[in-house]
Design a protein around this nucleic acid. Structure first.
Lengths: 110, 110
DNA sequence: ACTTTATACATTGTTATACAATGTATAAAG
DNA sequence: CTTTATACATTGTATAACAATGTATAAAGT
């Protein structure tokens, strides 16, 4: 019961948080989908479902926060690399400001 | 456009975060609905819509994280006071752990 | 007297998002 | 030759924030 609520809560916390994490990861490098899942897992211990990541990246692309390009591999399936756009960089700055303020507020009450 | 994305993002961040904030506020005192909106506004600068708060409190009650009691006023409309249950206290502890870990991870990448 | 503003709780409909399930395809390892 | 890992994608479901709307009391403004 209790665990069930926490599980659902964690899923809700990810709404918004995931996009924020992914944009932050893309600030330093270009990455392709699977790599983004690995990086997120490594950096935050959050396991992103594939059914979450790909629609999310498409949304970010549609919003013009990231751009993508296909890169053929000598072996295996082509990879779609994502990169922050100028708009993505400036939007991320606003998001970081909001997050820091939120974090600070929550730190005071927990 | 950009602002539009940020506005929607902030709304998404609130999913999960709001429940967490409200439970934390209720850790120290009993509060009624309107007071919870004020406290949240004061402590986090987040303006909770009424259409968000009341269904949210009902969910928390249904999940047995809070209990409520009506208190008649000498003047004005009766108030419904909310209080953390034992289950609410222990669940909140788990949530705080998750949040601290998340916060720490995000701090490293922003 | 009448209107506005603030308090107090609540429901309905809309929108956005995480995620399980499922699908397609390549290639290395057992 | 079957399993596992890589790689991208879609569909359907559940959940939650919020605008809009509704009901009701009472103080303050004009």
């Amino acid at each position: 019961m209790e665990d069930d609520f926490v599980r659902r809560w964690e899923s809700q916390v990810k709404k918004g948080t995931l996009a924020f994490i992914l944009l932050n990861i893309l600030r330093d490098n270009e990455y392709y989908g699977f790599e983004l899942m690995e990086q997120t897992r490594r950096l935050t211990d959050i396991q992103i479902a594939e059914g979450t990541l790909y629609p999310l990246m498409n949304r970010l692309k549609k919003e013009n926060l990231v751009s993508s390009k296909w890169v053929e591999q000598e072996s295996g399936i082509p990879r779609k690399y994502y990169k922050l756009t100028g708009n993505g960089i400036s939007t991320l700055k606003i998001m970081v400001e909001y997050w820091k303020k939120l974090e600070e507020s929550i730190d005071k009450i927990i």
